[in-house]
């Protein structure tokens, strides 16, 4: 796969069809993969990487890159393709300046997930035929990728590419029996006290580093309300429980109906807060109240929050459902 992608990237860059390539390369550590913009064939030959550790969603980078001179080649996993499609819908990416190659994806992993398996002292990770060879200070271990998939990949919602110019590999389908809402469902069935305790436990760890916001392909505002002194709610430090709640509620609300559930927010959170749960709660509510809606599925779709029907549920539906006390 990596070689096919490299070949294609070199061919397009060499012919001048594209001016730059969005892909992945090694980060600080071998196993720490980072998004990268390649502008020369040499860079691609030496640094371009694609393997099961290439988690980062590249689509957001197009907000800037697609406004530059010349076309940008981007490699899109299905998740990234949904994000790009939503960004095109919102006019955030100039479609004509993008050459999108869809790539098939069987799920991604990263060092954090591997560490959760009890593997410590990782020095290097290589991959061969779906099996990770993990070199650690204490010796080598071989682990199949499917055993260490990230939660979002275990609960993969779709292997389809809503937008692409060309595909490498086979086009997949939406996953019908995806169980991504089971955790939201579990929390909904708690009592309000339990839910409050659960989220305080999670959100109180927030250090307001803004990593979730910065990585989120739906958070592409030119200037975030939280950074804008004139907005009246600009605050940067997480110094209080309210602040943590406020930031995450408003952020989730602003991306509601637009969030494609790519799971990047939770992936990058240094405090391992399961932020995707807030987004999934909105997605689950939208699906249940207004009919299934997958942002990014079709370019030009109307978000449920900019739409209505005359017979929508009244907000008191919230009082009537969910929670142990009402079950």
């Amino acid at each position: 796969m990596q070689e096919m992608m490299k070949k294609k990237a070199i061919e397009l860059l060499g012919s001048g069809a594209v001016a730059r390539v969005l892909g992945w390369k090694k980060g600080e550590f071998d196993y720490d993969i980072t998004p990268a913009v390649f502008e020369s064939i040499e860079e691609i030959e030496n640094e371009f990487i694609y393997n099961s550790l290439c988690s980062p969603n590249l689509s957001k980078y197009l907000v800037k890159e697609s406004r530059k001179e010349g076309k940008t080649l981007i490699f899109l996993k299905p998740c990234d393709s949904y994000s790009l499609s939503q960004l095109i819908t919102e006019h955030r990416v100039v479609r004509e300046n993008v050459y999108a190659i869809g790539i098939e994806c069987y799920g991604k992993t990263d060092a954090d997930t591997i560490k959760e398996k009890g593997i410590k002292g990782i020095t290097k990770i290589t991959e061969n035929d779906g099996v990770l060879n993990i070199e650690t200070l204490y010796g080598n271990e071989k682990v199949p990728v499917y055993e260490v998939l990230r939660e979002r990949c275990v609960n993969c919602k779709s292997k389809k590419h809503p937008v692409y110019d060309e595909l490498i590999g086979e086009e997949g389908q939406a996953v019908d029996d995806c169980e991504r809402f089971s955790e939201v469902d579990r929390i909904e069935r708690m009592t309000p006290e339990e839910r409050f305790a659960f989220f305080r436990g999670e959100l109180s760890r927030c250090i307001r580093c803004n990593a979730c916001r910065n990585v989120c392909p739906a958070c592409t505002c030119e200037k975030c309300v939280f950074d804008n002194d004139a907005s009246g709610i600009a605050q940067k430090a997480a110094s209080d429980s309210f602040e943590e709640n406020m930031f995450h509620i408003i952020r989730a609300f602003h991306v509601a109906g637009r969030c494609t559930d790519c799971g990047e927010c939770s992936r990058v959170c240094p405090q391992n807060i399961p932020l995707h749960l807030l987004n999934r709660k909105f997605i689950k509510d939208i699906n249940e109240l207004y009919g299934n809606y997958q942002p990014g599925e079709n370019i030009g779709n109307r978000s449920p929050l900019t739409d209505y029907t005359q017979n929508d549920a009244e907000p008191n539906i919230v009082y009537k459902r969910g929670g142990k006390d009402n079950a």
Partner: peptide, 10 residues
């Protein structure tokens, strides 16, 4: 509706 549901969720 969505906001109230989220507050309840939290």
């Amino acid at each position: 509706t969505l906001l109230f549901s989220m507050l309840d969720f939290l």
